[in-house]
């Protein structure tokens, strides 16, 4: 699939986040985050729950409305009130922790519905694109099934194929393996690794440290709504400099050795 490979790397978009702030009432969950993702780069966001990493990710395609700061995605300024949000989101694929497949549609229809209704592709073209992407995630024969007939790992792979069918220039992953049975985590991570090697820009919120270390170009450690430490994946995970990062990684990587 060299053509897809090349075109994907060429089309890949970056993200520039500057001084992003988000509050729920008086609770400030993002306290001025700045973060750049270059086209084709894979960045993993790690940190304890409640650190704001999912909120940050959801701000990138405006599922959460930021209270301050700017976000540029591809050619769009997401935080501009005049921006065409729907147009912007067509280029930003999103994969959720809970899959969020459409249960009333077949696997194939899940992957064609937005192509047909949003991109106005004809049905045959949409189905061809959907089949291609279902094959990419190893589910080429599953088009006629309904989501509730699939395992969690299979559902998440369909969700990835659904996002890819829009031919996005950037993919956002919000804890894509956190709701999965342990034995199906690997199949989803393998697909994500393949995507990364094909040159897709990826921003991934994850607790899978082995994946982050192996696949990410950069790892960003967040805690309490700020970026505590960031750098090359091997450095942040293998040799963290900040005490909070060290503490977090010790607990994640070696859960049985915690001082109580």
């Amino acid at each position: 699939m060299t053509t897809t490979h090349n075109s994907m790397a060429e089309r890949a978009a970056g993200v520039e986040i500057t001084d992003l702030r988000k509050s729920y009432g008086s609770n400030e969950v993002l306290k001025g985050i700045s973060l750049d993702v270059k086209p084709g780069e894979v960045v993993c966001l790690i940190g304890p729950s409640g650190s704001g990493k999912s909120t940050l990710l959801r701000c990138v395609n405006l599922l959460e409305q930021p209270n301050g700061g700017t976000i540029h995605v591809g050619g769009f300024e997401a935080t501009d009130p005049e921006v065409n949000l729907d147009k912007m989101r067509q280029n930003v694929g999103m994969v959720f922790q809970q899959f969020n497949l459409f249960p009333h549609l077949t696997v194939l229809e899940n992957c064609t519905v937005a192509q047909i209704k949003v991109l106005k592709r004809d049905k045959a073209t949409a189905q061809a694109t959907a089949k291609l992407n279902l094959e990419r995630v190893g589910l080429g024969d599953f088009g006629a099934r309904y989501p509730d007939e699939l395992s969690g790992g299979q559902q998440q792979r369909v969700a990835i194929a659904r996002a890819l069918s829009m031919e996005p220039t950037l993919m956002l992953f919000d804890e894509p393996t956190s709701a999965l049975d342990p034995e199906t985590v690997g199949e989803v991570l393998a697909i994500m690794k393949k995507l990364a090697s094909e040159g897709m820009t990826m921003l991934v919120v994850t607790h899978e440290m082995a994946f982050a270390k192996e696949v990410a170009d950069r790892v960003v450690f967040m805690d309490g709504g700020v970026v505590v430490e960031e750098g090359r994946a091997a450095e942040v995970i293998g040799n963290p400099q900040q005490p909070r990062t060290q503490d977090f990684l010790r607990r994640v990587l070696d859960p049985t050795h915690v001082d109580i």
Binding site: L63, K87, Q90, V92, L101, F102, H104, V113, K117, V118
Partner: peptide, 29 residues
């Protein structure tokens, strides 16, 4: 579930389209 609307909007559907194509058919059942 709210995630249905979020998934639809993330695919670039306007709010009315997400309502008509994704939410209403499920609510109907």
């Amino acid at each position: 579930p709210k995630g249905q609307t979020e998934a639809a909007r993330s695919l670039g559907m306007p709010a009315w389209r997400a309502m008509v194509t994704i939410v209403i058919p499920q609510a109907f059942k």
